[in-house]
């Protein structure tokens, strides 16, 4: 299957060099295979290492039970759900699933449709809990895709998401999103939204 792809760049975290990558606008067989064959073993290894060096569980990844094969199968053929992947060096570096059925909660955009990021995960070797993350920019590339989709669909760049506990500072400080507080109806995760103006600033 020929997957649509748009060029993006990641950064090699060690050297600082730009690394060519591709934004794939669906989660296909290749991405699921990569998740199973590369992400899972790397995650097992991370957990084993975190245990050995005694890192408190508060800093363990919260998504070890996520199954991207199930997440993809769940929404096959449904117009409202889109999958995205970042690939580089022949391997999937990040995955994201979005839902177009959601609306804004923030006062300035209540009831206005936005792209809701249901799941966003970067490959284990790109994460902060690794001693030396390999590539930087995967999360940013995926969020950029979400904002671009929002613009394409006429939602003016609006996006929303529930942040994993450890990731809150990224959305608030690095992405400039609005913090709408803890959502008791959603695993007590913190909910963030990006307004149209914030999206313009984000894409800068």
């Amino acid at each position: 299957m020929n997957q649509g792809g748009l060029p993006v760049f990641l950064t090699d975290a060690l050297s600082g060099d730009g690394v060519p990558a591709t934004l794939v606008t669906q989660i296909g067989e290749q991405q699921i295979s990569d998740w199973h064959d590369y992400w899972r073993p790397a995650l097992e290894e991370t957990l084993a290492r975190l245990r050995v060096i005694g890192v408190p569980r508060a800093r363990w990844p919260q998504t070890t039970h996520w199954n991207w094969e199930s997440k993809t199968k769940q929404v096959v053929g449904l117009l409202a759900f889109r999958g995205f992947a970042i690939t580089s060096q022949g391997v999937t570096q990040g995955l994201m699933r979005v839902d177009l059925n959601h609306s804004g909660r923030q006062a300035t955009q209540i009831g206005k449709p936005l792209v809701y990021v249901e799941y966003l995960e970067v490959a284990p070797w790109n994460r902060a809990e690794f001693a030396k993350p390999r590539y930087r920019g995967v999360g940013t590339a995926l969020l950029t895709a979400a904002v671009d989709l929002s613009l394409e669909e006429g939602f003016h760049g609006r996006i929303g998401l529930h942040s994993l506990t450890q990731a809150e500072s990224f959305y608030r400080d690095a992405c400039g999103m609005s913090d709408l507080g803890i959502d008791e109806n959603y695993d007590n995760l913190r909910y963030f939204e990006m307004t149209s103006e914030q999206a313009t600033a984000f894409l800068g």
Binding site: L78, F81, L100, N101, P113
Partner: peptide, 8 residues
């Protein structure tokens, strides 16, 4: 949007 919601 209506079509997406209906299908979902």
């Amino acid at each position: 949007q209506a079509l997406r919601l209906y299908q979902t």
